[in-house]
Simulated scan of single mutants.
Amino acid sequence: MAYFRDWDGVTRPIQRVGKTGAEAERRLIKAMKERATPSSDVLSRDSTFTALATAWLITVDESDRADSTKARYRDLTERVLTPPLKEVRLRELSVPLLDRVLQKARSKVGPSTVKTARTVLVQMCAYALRKGALDSNLGEGTETVQIKKKAETALTVDDVKAIRALLVARDESPDKQGRRRYTRISDVADFYAGTGARTNEVLALGWDWVDLDAKTAFLERTLVEINGKVKIQDKPKSDDSRRKVALPQYVVDMLMRRRIQATTGLVFPSSRGTPQQDGNLMRMWSAALAKTPYEDVTPTTFRKAVATLLAAEVGAEAAASQLGHHDVSVTKKHYIRRENLGPSEAREVLGALFAP
């Protein structure tokens, strides 16, 4: 028997019985350790990583996260994190062990996937910490995943027009069977250029969200792929992505033509009238620009070019609002190409100092 100051600050007697004095003492010490760090009914220090993953995924499914995020988190948990840690007890987890798991995964799935997997791991450990099954967030102690940034392709207004011309040429040429092409990717490019919208926002756009009289479009939905199936999610990538954009006249004209010809409720459907997969669009885009100076340009590059050109004309804040970003710093960091220009005053000073 011992007096124990419990987790709520109250001192209480605690007693354990054993066949011998030593056994009773061991049971008493174990009981006090468990009382010192109370765990939930769901998890304890003796729970396996699988039990943690199962409990955490239930909270993810019950959250208001986007369906695509829920599917992504579940996939990474079941495919990357759980297999190597399946039977490991939570009391056996350590930063070196988790670090080793992430490093091994990097050679199989790539740095971008591992970076998201680390985010999942941090959230999972935070959940275990709140339940009293961990003393600290071990996920935060793992090494952050650095992704090598690709060199940006700086597109000018003339480049954007040249790319559009190549896409129009592809659209107006017959397919391999000599038939007229159904999908006009130049129309999608026009919508990119006129709005700066994301690909999946464009492909999820329905005619009910387009007001041709007011020359506006509501970007409130996005296309997601869950378990290999494409569906329209009635929720954008983030709350700030929900926005109304003003449409330039050339985009209105393009949409008017498509509205007259439309046979479905989608603005940019597939040839079967279903939501068009972004992967299929990407293949057609790449084929149109293959063996040209723009073969490395993707729809994302195109969107970044629009952001850069828009920021140069009306400012970064306006570009961020147009692209649906909550923080202008995101737009500046990932979408607006930075030009390191020296101050104009330096020209006069250096010219006066060193002119021959």
Rank of each mutant, 00 (worst) to 15 (best):
R72T: 15
R5C: 00
Q261F: 04
I14C: 08
A290G: 00
A71E: 14
F268I: 04
T199G: 02
S63F: 15
F354V: 01
R259H: 15
G194H: 04
A305L: 06
K115Y: 04
T54A: 10
Q177F: 13
T331E: 11
D213Y: 11
V88I: 05
P83K: 13
L223A: 07
I185L: 06
N200C: 03
L341R: 04
P248F: 11
S63I: 05
K33A: 07
L129H: 02
S136E: 14
L167A: 12
T298G: 05
R106V: 04
S286I: 12
D158H: 07
G194T: 08
D158W: 03
K215E: 10
I29G: 03
K86E: 10
T199E: 08
K161R: 14
R91S: 07
N200Y: 03
G324I: 12
V42I: 13
R337F: 09
A346Y: 00
S112R: 15
K148N: 07
T59E: 14
D234T: 15
L353S: 02
A305W: 01
A154T: 03
P174V: 03
D296M: 02
V202R: 06
A288T: 11
V314L: 01
T11V: 05
L102R: 00
A66C: 14
R12W: 12
G196Q: 03
E78A: 05
K161Y: 10
L138C: 00
L223Y: 13
A290S: 13
P84G: 04
E140R: 13
G342N: 03
K33M: 04
Y182K: 09
E339Q: 12
A305S: 08
A316T: 13
A117N: 07
R242T: 08
G110C: 13
R243A: 05
M124D: 02
S39M: 02
I232Q: 09
R259A: 15
I29V: 12
G18Y: 07
R303E: 08
T308F: 14
T119S: 14
L57Q: 09
E313S: 13
T222E: 10
Q177V: 12
E140I: 01
R303K: 06
E317Q: 15
V145F: 05
P236E: 09
T216I: 12
R27D: 11
K33S: 06
D175S: 01
S286D: 10
D99Y: 00
A318C: 04
T183C: 08
D99N: 09
K304C: 02
R283I: 11
S321W: 08
T331P: 03
Y335T: 12
T77G: 03
K161M: 07
V297Y: 10
E313N: 06
T292L: 12
E348H: 01
Q233N: 13
M282F: 14
I147D: 05
R303C: 09
A31P: 10
D67H: 14
G196R: 00
T298R: 14
T300C: 04
V80G: 06
A307Y: 02
A214K: 15
V42E: 11
V252L: 00
T183N: 13
S107V: 03
D253C: 05
S271K: 10
E339A: 01
L212E: 01
E34Q: 14
K131R: 14
T20V: 03
I336K: 08
R184C: 12
L281E: 02
L155P: 02
A312H: 15
L289Y: 02
Y335L: 13
A320S: 07
E152I: 01
D175A: 03
L134Q: 07
D211K: 11
S44H: 06
S40G: 12
Q146W: 02
